[in-house]
Simulated assay, not measured.
Amino acid sequence: MDTAARAADADIARAVAEAAARRLIEVRDANPTLDGRALKDLGDAEAQLVIAATLTELAPADAVLSEEAADSAARLDASRVWIIDPLDGTREFSEGRDDWAVHAALVVDGMLALGAVALGGPERVLVSSEVDEHAPAQDGPVRIAVSRTRPPQLVEHVAAALGAELVPMGSAGVKICSVVTGQADAYIHGGGQYEWDSAAPIAIARAAGLHTSRLDGSELLYNQPNPYLPDLVVCRPELKDRIMGAIADALAAQPE
Rank of each mutant, 00 (worst) to 15 (best):
residue 66 S to A: 15
residue 67 E to C: 06
residue 68 E to P: 13
residue 69 A to V: 14
residue 69 A to E: 15
residue 69 A to Q: 14
residue 69 A to N: 07
residue 70 A to M: 09
residue 71 D to A: 10
residue 72 S to R: 11
residue 72 S to H: 14
residue 72 S to G: 04
residue 74 A to E: 12
residue 75 R to S: 09
residue 76 L to H: 10
residue 76 L to M: 14
residue 77 D to E: 09
residue 77 D to K: 04
residue 78 A to F: 06
residue 78 A to T: 07
residue 79 S to F: 08
residue 79 S to I: 03
residue 79 S to Q: 08
residue 80 R to A: 15
residue 80 R to C: 10
residue 80 R to T: 07
residue 80 R to Y: 00
residue 82 W to R: 02
residue 83 I to T: 07
residue 83 I to D: 04
residue 83 I to M: 09
residue 83 I to V: 15
residue 85 D to C: 04
residue 86 P to T: 03
residue 87 L to T: 02
residue 87 L to C: 13
residue 87 L to G: 12
residue 89 G to M: 03
residue 89 G to A: 05
residue 90 T to P: 04
residue 90 T to Y: 03
residue 90 T to D: 02
residue 90 T to E: 03
residue 91 R to F: 03
residue 91 R to Q: 14
residue 92 E to L: 02
residue 93 F to W: 05
residue 93 F to Q: 11
residue 93 F to Y: 15
residue 94 S to M: 09
residue 94 S to L: 12
residue 94 S to Q: 05
residue 94 S to T: 08
residue 95 E to N: 10
residue 95 E to I: 02
residue 95 E to W: 04
residue 95 E to H: 14
residue 96 G to H: 15
residue 97 R to M: 09
residue 98 D to P: 12
residue 98 D to L: 11
residue 98 D to S: 14
residue 100 W to T: 09
residue 100 W to S: 11
residue 101 A to N: 11
residue 101 A to I: 00
residue 101 A to C: 02
residue 102 V to Q: 04
residue 102 V to I: 02
residue 104 A to K: 03
residue 104 A to C: 13
residue 105 A to Q: 02
residue 106 L to D: 00
residue 106 L to C: 08
residue 107 V to C: 07
residue 107 V to K: 10
residue 108 V to D: 01
residue 110 G to Y: 15
residue 110 G to S: 06
residue 110 G to I: 01
residue 112 L to N: 05
residue 112 L to F: 01
residue 112 L to P: 08
residue 113 A to M: 02
residue 114 L to N: 01
residue 117 V to D: 01
residue 117 V to M: 05
residue 117 V to Q: 07
residue 118 A to G: 04
residue 119 L to E: 10
residue 120 G to P: 10
residue 121 G to W: 09
residue 122 P to H: 14
residue 123 E to N: 09
residue 123 E to A: 02
residue 124 R to K: 14
residue 124 R to P: 01
residue 125 V to W: 11
residue 125 V to K: 15
residue 126 L to E: 00
residue 126 L to M: 15
